[in-house]
Amino acid sequence: MAVGPATIARPAPVEGRPDTLRGLLEREGVFSWLMLAPGVLFLLAFVAYPFFYGIFLSLQDRRVANPGIFVGLANFQSLAHDPVFWQVTRNTLMYVVVTTILKLSGGLGMALVMNQKFRGRNLVRASLLLPFIVPTALSTVAWMWILDPTFSVVNWVLVHGGVISSGFSWLGNASLAMWSLIVVNTWRGTPFYGITLLAGLQTISPDLYEAAAIDGASVTQRFLYVTLPVIKPVLVIVTMFSVIFTFGDFQLIYALTHGGPANATHVFSTWAFDIGMSAGQLGMGAAVALAILPALAVLIVGLTLYLRRE
């Protein structure tokens, strides 16, 4: 019996001609761009456009309701000579660095606890998320009362507990005001770390812990050599996001202190708003807002490179 050459299985021909709509949609390149288009358009409209418009504004002497005059880097030069700008820079860095450290450590602790099995775990998980869920404007009002010298529950407890004789000025004292804001931001931001890191923790196979335990690893060693390496990418990403959000924090500070007393709590976002909106200097306001860009860019590029290397 003559044996003919084996027939090679071919994929079924694409239905429809390439020049019809269906044919076009069947092409992977076209279809993937079509799926990406809404997201890309959204980013272009609400992220890229405002960002580049902000850069454009920062290079102008642009007063509200007036045409702008191109001034190059004059706005940035002017800022460099303004002592308040440097105070705002110091405030922002302190606010971001301290809150990030506190939120990171607090969130990690929260995630480790929530990863344990105990009664009412789901209820605790849900309630710990509350600070993150409650609108900032609303929770800030509550904090206004908590930190109010007259009606402060903290002062009341301290005074009636015999710890102090008169209440602290949580928002009137320059140092205390900054620390008060740091506490509020940490309270609000820790659940974000907690829940994200918890998701990372839950991907760790129990086998790894068992193997480590058999090898005689202590709890600390298991954390350092099993937990931490596995959740490191999540840790880096959540820190990056949090730093970006904290750099741009506005509502909390604006509502509680509006940058006072004597600029002690002004950060880039609140100061930019005052200059851009209250003073009507949109160009200078944009320059202030963009002043955080180099620091953020270095951070983002650095963390991204680190992630890729990992």
């Binding site: 206004m144 109010d148 010298p149 007259t150 009606f151 000025s169 949580w170 928002l171 009137g172 004292n173 320059a174 005001a177 202190t257 509006h258 006072g260 007393p261 004597a262």
Partner: peptide, 21 residues
Amino acid sequence: MFEDVLGWTDVNNNKAFLGEQ
């Protein structure tokens, strides 16, 4: 006065006055 006025915004003095402080 007392230290807190340094950090007051516009709502605080109303509250303090009506709170008899």
